[in-house]
Simulated scan of single mutants.
Amino acid sequence: MRFSSLSKNTLRALTALIMAAVYVPLALVIMNSFNAATSSSFPVQEFSTKWWVAAWNNQGVREALWTSVKVAFWATLIALILGSMVAFALSRYRFFGRNTVNLLVVLPIALPGIVTGVAFSNTFKNVFEPLSINLGLFSIIVGHATFCIVMVFNNVQARLGQMNRGLEEAAMDMGANVFRTFFQVTFPGFRAAFVAGALLAFALSFDEVVVTTFTAAPGTETLPIWIYNNMARPNQAPVVNVIAAVLILVSMIPVYLSQRLTGADQLERKAAKQRKAA
């Protein structure tokens, strides 16, 4: 399909407009985190790092940061284990209800966060609290793991579907046991997708706010919840800008690394196919 010059210029203008609408507000938040004034403004008259120092010295911020890291780490670990196992089961085996299981695994990422949050809140209050399991760090981790699993599952399943199973069969024919075949042949084949899924899961958990609101105990704050609770307080506005900037950067880095890993993996597979064809 070929486009006229007018169509190309129109598409470029629309693309630039959409990108500006998304990234200019983010840039303003980062810029105002270095604003020496106590209120956000543009253009910034004087730059300073004092609010970054104030944010680091804020005990509530540091506790919220540590809580976010712990939740994201454990949610990602659970997602890596369960997401990979389900991906293997659905990619390597055919059984009754396979498509239904696939749907149920990916459904949490499509559900509104408030629905997931309400469901977990009711479950913990009505089922687990009588068993002395209350809302807290564990409930947040479980809530986050439900949608983090989808990130790992999608990446690993897509890569497993492209792998040559003949390599595994050849390794086992040559005497390698199941574990040696997995760690020396299978895992290297989907390692990039595995790590990319982990990075996306960590980023998704780290900046999640809706599910956390319903699954956190009173007084338990992650960084997004800290922002939500303090953004209406005028004296905390500069520190809120700093924390928002941190969340932007922390979210961008895993996504960038995941994209790089996926791109490198695709280039490697393309080169392998070209070598095989030659």
Rank of each mutant, 00 (worst) to 15 (best):
S91T: 14
A37I: 01
G97K: 04
Y228C: 08
K8T: 09
F153Q: 04
L223Y: 05
N99H: 12
V178Y: 10
G161L: 09
F183E: 05
L65F: 15
T222I: 01
N229H: 04
T15I: 03
R233Q: 08
S91F: 01
A55M: 14
L137R: 05
W51H: 15
S5D: 08
L200E: 05
V255G: 07
S4A: 11
M174A: 10
L247G: 00
N241E: 04
G189L: 02
P112W: 06
E129R: 14
S33D: 11
H144Y: 14
R92I: 00
I18Y: 07
L160M: 15
I30A: 14
S139Y: 03
V246P: 01
T38H: 11
R165Y: 14
M151R: 03
F147R: 05
K8R: 14
S91H: 06
G97N: 08
S132W: 11
A192G: 03
A244L: 03
M252T: 13
G263L: 06
T38G: 13
T100P: 03
S5F: 13
A110D: 00
A271L: 05
F183I: 15
F88C: 08
R269S: 06
S39G: 06
A13F: 09
T146C: 13
M19G: 05
A87V: 04
V127G: 05
R165T: 10
R12T: 03
V53Y: 12
Q266G: 10
G83H: 00
I243Q: 12
A64C: 15
A170I: 06
A37S: 15
A277H: 06
M172T: 09
F47S: 10
N102I: 02
W74R: 05
F194T: 03
T222S: 10
G197L: 01
R2F: 07
N122F: 15
S251H: 09
F124H: 02
F96D: 05
L199H: 09
A244C: 07
Q259V: 06
I114V: 12
W226Q: 05
W226F: 08
S40D: 15
F147D: 04
S4P: 10
N177G: 13
T262E: 15
L6A: 08
A176P: 01
G136I: 01
V210E: 03
S48Y: 10
R62W: 08
T100C: 08
V105L: 04
W226S: 07
Q157M: 09
S68K: 00
R233S: 11
V29A: 03
G166S: 15
L104I: 07
G263W: 03
S40P: 07
K125W: 12
K70M: 07
S205F: 02
V195K: 10
V61A: 09
V142I: 15
G83Q: 00
A89P: 01
T10E: 00
P108G: 13
L28T: 08
F128C: 06
A278H: 13
L111Q: 11
I227M: 15
A13N: 04
V61S: 08
S258D: 06
C148L: 05
A20P: 02
E169K: 14
A217G: 05
